[in-house]
Design a binder for these strands. Structure first.
Length: 425
RNA sequence: GACCCCAUCGUCUAGCCUGGUCAGGACACAAGCUUUUCAAGCUUGCAGCGCGGGUUCAAAUCCCGCUGGGGUCGCCA
């Protein structure tokens, strides 16, 4: 049997973090089995489906790296669903209520073997007759889903646990249609940080939010796969290809998992730190351009130096931008508390002297700057720490950051002197 | 409420199927080392089998109950 999975989002909202995980598991399963992965847009709700959402979902799927082999849109297939409904009508298995078509649910046992949970059983008495075609002529979710899964020859339906009670209803439809149901696997849900239901209030829920914040797709995917699944060998940082090799649907957890921004950030930081510098620059540049901090003709080498300095100090690009703003903008602010703590008259007294000596440094490299600065500090009879911290605040607006001399070198002579003089004056 | 699903450190998890290993790893947290600060890195520490019954020489692991959490009960998907 050829393996075929599908991800079937409905374009009534952005691609959700939970949806992304469902897509990921479907994708991984298909790839791990040498199977086929289908993207099916479930846009049967004409009212709520929006083009912008569709675009966003497709865009996010591509960004995450989940390539699909086939693409369908249910709105193209309404005739098909009506045809199958008519068949059930003709066979007397369904009845009409006005223009709507409704399936009779006969008395039967509706059980299935869930690949993750094992036997799940429902009694048909608890299930009421199912609407197949709505009064407006469009198919219901379950009906379109069953017809499509059957016609597209989906072998495994891997979806969220919230669909588990839809399964017996769909099983009844398969039976009425005399079609063989696929195998089912219901993934545990992703909860928010507090263990509650994921909602807009739980922080970022859309994949695009994470993208905008500067998370790497690989890191997000890595994090998502660890939610409910583990390679089993204590490995946390794992690439998608190697995860695919180790993937087994039976090893997927049954219990819901709480989302942890801390761990996602840690993983993203791991990827950021180990990524080749050139590639990291590539990743960062669009964010800098978007803010208008650099132009088309930016100094690539300069950006590379900055990135190198900050790559172990950021969990995402948003953080990077906050920490490096002082390099791109003149009006970085120093809080009053910071001024009182690090920029007192006494602490800044030697700034003019630092500036005077630094002025002669050429080239303005980390090594030469350090030589000059240390000599200065010695002559002034200061301790390094007494000089370093105030100067850092004056130059960057913050009392934490990379080594001072690296910072000066990357800031450049002109700005360094200007900022020292500004405060020292 | 009815039906269904689930239950190992604060969080993500390994172990459960095929009972016997000080219950392992990671994030977070704490301490130390390093250091011009902050990160990073290294070392160490803290912390868990929800409860109660069985079965067994032996239970995180098998069975039952309870409790707790979650999901679904739409002509939404």
């Amino acid at each position: 049997m050829t393996i075929k999975t599908r991800f079937a989002p409905s374009p009534t909202g952005f691609l959700h973090i939970g949806g992304a995980r469902t897509a990921l598991f479907n994708w991984m399963y298909a790839r791990s089995q040498g199977g086929c992965f289908v993207l099916r847009i479930e846009d049967t709700d004409q009212e709520r489906s929006k083009r912008e959402y569709l675009d966003e979902i497709v865009d996010s799927m591509e960004w995450l790296g989940f390539a699909w082999d086939e693409l369908y849109q249910q709105s193209d297939r309404f005739d098909l669903y009506r045809q199958y409904a008519q068949k059930l009508l003709d066979e007397g298995k369904a009845y009409t209520d006005g223009p709507a078509v409704i399936l009779k649910i006969p008395q039967m046992q509706l059980k299935f073997f869930d690949l993750i949970r094992g036997e799940v059983e429902f009694n048909s008495e608890t299930i009421k007759d199912q609407v197949l075609i709505k009064s407006d002529g469009s198919p219901t979710y379950s009906f379109a889903c069953v017809v499509d899964d059957a016609l597209m020859e989906i072998s495994h339906v891997i979806r969220g646990e919230d669909h588990i009670s839809n399964t017996p209803k769909q099983l009844a439809i398969y039976q009425a249609l005399d079609l063989k149901p696929p195998k089912f696997a219901h993934l545990p849900l992703i909860m928010d940080e507090e263990g509650g239901r994921m909602s807009k209030r739980s922080g970022a829920t859309a994949v695009s939010d994470y993208r905008r914040q500067g998370f790497l797709p690989d890191a997000l995917v890595n994090y998502l796969m660890l939610l409910g699944w583990s390679p089993g060998d204590n490995q946390e940082v794992i690439s998608l290809p190697s995860a695919v090799k180790k993937f087994s649907i039976k090893k997927v957890n049954k219990a819901a998992a709480a989302f942890s921004m801390d761990k996602l950030k840690w993983l993203n930081a791991e990827y950021l730190k180990t990524m080749p510098l050139e590639q990291l620059v590539e990743f960062v540049v669009p964010f800098l351009k978007e803010r208008g901090w650099i132009a088309e003709d930016y100094d690539r080498n300069w950006i590379l130096n900055i990135v190198e300095l900050y790559k172990s100090r950021m969990a995402d690009i948003e953080e990077f931008l906050v920490r490096t703003a002082y390099l791109f903008q003149e009006d970085f602010s120093v809080s009053d508390a910071m001024k009182e703590k690090q920029l007192t008259v006494e602490q800044t007294a030697c700034f003019p002297d630092f500036a005077e000596n630094l002025k002669r440094v050429d080239p303005f490299s980390k090594e030469l700057v350090e030589q000059a600065f240390r000599r200065c500090v010695e002559e002034q009879n200061l301790k390094m720490s007494e000089a370093v911290h105030p100067v850092r605040v004056a130059l960057t607006g913050s009392d934490v950051g990379p080594g001072l001399f690296e910072t000066m070198a990357v800031l450049g002579k002109e700005k360094t002197l200007k900022r020292l003089q500004l405060v020292g004056a």
